[in-house]
Simulated scan of single mutants.
Amino acid sequence: MIETENSQRGNPPTVLQVLPGLVTGGVERGTVDMADALVQAGWRALVASSGGPMVRELERAGATHITLPLDSKNPFRMRTNARELARLIQEYGVHIVHARSRAPAWSAYWATRRTGTPFVTSFHAPYKITGPVKRWYNSVMTRGDRVIAISNFIGRHIAENYKIDPNLMRVIPRGVDLDRFDPELVSAERMIQLSEAWRLEDGVPVVMLPGRLTRWKGQAVLIQAMAELRDVPALAVLVGSDQGRVAYREELEATVEKLELKSSVRFAGECRDMPAAYMLSDVVVSASTEPEGFGRVSVEAQALGRPVVGSNHGGVAETVLPGQTGWLVPADDPKALAAALRQALALAGEERAAWAARAMEHVRQNYSKQLMCARTIAIYQELLEERAGMT
């Protein structure tokens, strides 16, 4: 447990996190993990969002959720949200406001300037800059009293594209819950149940690509790579929902049909037991054609001892150790991906076990949830101490 001087005096600091919603995703997972860590540390955790399925998990952790339409990008609604957040800051005696997405960040920024409350932002993605207006809109994520970049890649993106005092920026990678992504805790029953649902055949290696079905996640690249591996017995499993992108899913299915890969590619849909899914895999692929801010898939897979083949850009290029825990290949290059998969699928016995051990240790040392939360709470404490020194 991380304890602070304030919590020991019985006067717990209060942190308000703001984000669009709590449906699913890395930003949402980080918010819930952070709220849980704050409660465990003796702080008070508030989260404001438009709501979603993860609210229940948040409240089980002991945090308080306040429903506001923070998913709206309507300028008038954003101003109204700012007034509501200012009211909440005063009502709950909030000490720190932490914004994790642009539209709610603007509302939080205006509210904290009005109330004089320290403001933290987490910069999660290399937001596209299509002109001065978009640059200005994105810039709210650099207006925090502290700005958290979720990878060195994002840190460089911020420094190259926005005016920011480098002393205010901190790089804190996302963290994986090692109590959940632990191979010792994934039961055989869970793996059997999922294997049956996916209709997996015994003895056929599984190449898994987790991620919602959207073009930049690279499902088409993996399908094309499988066409280069017809001599290798393997099944590519695409794990993730199309989230309404029916046309893209149909395009992928048509590609599978055209390349005569129906026996080598399977669409598994959404999966609610990702630790078991990783454990069923022989190799995990992160084939994003655009750079990701962090790349949670590669870290989760390594936490469970699975070799990873990832695109050599963005945050993924930082989390995979080439030749030790996985392979990095040029983005959108099916032949290069196929060559790396061929090597990964050839790992066996003691060599595979050595790769697994290195991958798990790599994640434990650098990408645990506990480390992420401790580093973030240290930033909160730093701001509280600065504020105390000003009074």
Rank of each mutant, 00 (worst) to 15 (best):
V23M: 05
Q343V: 03
H313Q: 14
R212K: 10
E351Y: 05
V297N: 00
N6E: 11
M226T: 00
H95A: 03
P322L: 03
G305E: 07
V32K: 13
R296N: 13
T325V: 06
A378W: 09
G52E: 08
I192V: 12
P322W: 00
A336V: 10
S263G: 08
L383D: 10
R180M: 13
V309G: 06
G349T: 05
N366P: 06
A225L: 01
I129D: 07
S241G: 12
A41E: 06
P233E: 08
L238C: 06
R100Q: 14
Y92H: 15
S368G: 15
K73H: 13
T214A: 12
G218Y: 02
T289C: 08
W355F: 15
K369R: 15
F76L: 14
P126Q: 10
E184K: 14
R249W: 02
A378Q: 14
L38C: 12
R230V: 01
A111E: 04
A159W: 02
E5A: 15
L185P: 01
M360L: 13
R215P: 06
A247K: 15
A353I: 01
A339Y: 04
E201V: 15
R272K: 05
A277S: 02
A254P: 01
S101Y: 01
H65F: 08
L259D: 09
E91H: 05
K128R: 13
S7C: 00
P233S: 06
V232T: 13
R212P: 07
I158Y: 08
G26C: 05
T325S: 00
V283R: 02
G314S: 06
L38P: 09
Y109A: 11
S72N: 04
Y137H: 14
E84Y: 00
A276I: 14
I379G: 02
L85I: 15
L194Y: 06
V32H: 10
V320W: 06
I377F: 09
P75F: 10
R364P: 05
E160W: 03
V316G: 02
V239H: 05
V18A: 01
A348D: 11
S241K: 04
E251F: 10
A48C: 12
G211F: 15
I2A: 09
T121M: 01
F181R: 10
L341D: 03
G349A: 01
A359M: 01
Q324I: 04
G21D: 06
